[in-house]
Nucleic acid binder design. Sequence first.
RNA 1: UCCGGAGUGGCUCAACGGUAGAGCGGGUGGCUGUUAACCACUAGGUUGUAGGUUCGAUUCCUAUCUCCGGAGCCA
Length: 431
Amino acid sequence: MAEYILAKHISKYLDKEITLKGWVYNIRKSGKIWFLIFRDGTEFIQCVVLKNDVSEEIFELKNTLTQESSLAITGTVQEAPRQEAGYELLVKNIEVIHVAEEYPIALKDHGVDFLMDNRHLWLRSRLPYAIMKIRAEVEKACRDFFDERDFTLVDSPMFTPNAAEGSTTLFEAKYFDRKAYLTQSGQLYSEAAIMALNRTYCFGPCFRAEKSKTRRHLTEFWMIEPEMAFFDIFDDMDLAEEFVEYLVQRALKNCRRELEILDRDITKLKAIQRPFPRITYDEALELLTKKGFDIKFGDDLGAPHETAIAEEYNKPVMIWRWPAESKAFYMKRDPEDEKYVLGVDMIAPEGHGEIIGGSQREEDINVLLERIEKEDLPKEDFEWFLDIRRYGSVPHSGFGLGLERTVGWICGTHHVRECIPWPRTMGRLKP
RNA sequence: UCCGGAGUGGCUCAACGGUAGAGCGGGUGGCUGUUAACCACUAGGUUGUAGGUUCGAUUCCUAUCUCCGGAGCCA
């Protein structure tokens, strides 16, 4: 009886008889030989069926098996240097489990809308498969990085009573007889948590009802947000660059096969080593002016600006020390010049946009109150947040990294919607 | 919300205002090393919707819906 194995382990079974269980990816027929490209969710393997090696009944399956039919296939493993997997299976027997109906996704071009409508099937294709593998590795790397550095995972709530960022982009939910909002960020909760646990991170979905229709936006996306007591903006930036370097190198180390499937230029990823360039907002303005942009102090940097800056480097760029008026109320003012806040954005190379936003947080309750009043935020909703500054306030910092944008950069995908299994955008809630 | 682009067999796309075509997928047949295999034959269409101009509209006009790309905002 042949041993049932996962296809990814095939190299350990050279010349042995094994059984694989999975699905038909493609069939190439010839007269007395046919090739079945098989997938089981761990690897793609070419299986060779020779007329003289199998029964008439098995050989004739070439006419009845359809794309995505499920089967158990038994045969001998042999080397096949021309195959991506390096091995192929010489078939002895095929047990058909289910013959699939005509499969809508062909191995040819399809439009994005069609593929997204069929996301539940599209996930079976090679590119989504590779991206999901890499996403899982990056998520694991996120946890490992912080777990190995004395951080405690403290999850934040999804239902919140108020906004964390601006109030314009909240999803409203019915919460019994009241209103609740889906969280946009766990940061405010993390600020409370570090006073209990010193260094924490939260990792989960965030929801923003932004009516954005660009390749960098989802309404539901995942964010990992570390928060650290006694960290200033420089400690924050040091950690951010160490973190991003770690994520990229982990993907390179553990997802080489998947990056190959995606045809990713890995020399670009290999170059992602510390230190990353750091420029201030003022320096960014100077650079942009030199490049011909019409931009003045106080203007926020848009996507074209970010791209222009990013293309100057082959590494992520950190832009820090931003004009206060363009940034959130909780960011700490620069003690040397009140016009600025100690915030930082990290821009990924190759046009993948902002992957990190972070800052040193304002620890002075009076400054915070002043900002809350000036921005006309509902003070009573922030009382608990102000308590953090009433009882042993300390300098602290943190940042948030967008998972899909980071995965999109590592994979070299065109759009972040490919980097989440079930994308939610302004116009898409299905499947 | 604003600006631009696109809606044609299951899918991806053609078609000067004049008989709607091709490739893939499906079906049938052929081929012993194929790499999105190849070759031959075959079925498959109220051109997003509603109006209008015209002898005649896939093509021009108006409205509307959907999708895509971008802007703003952000991760």
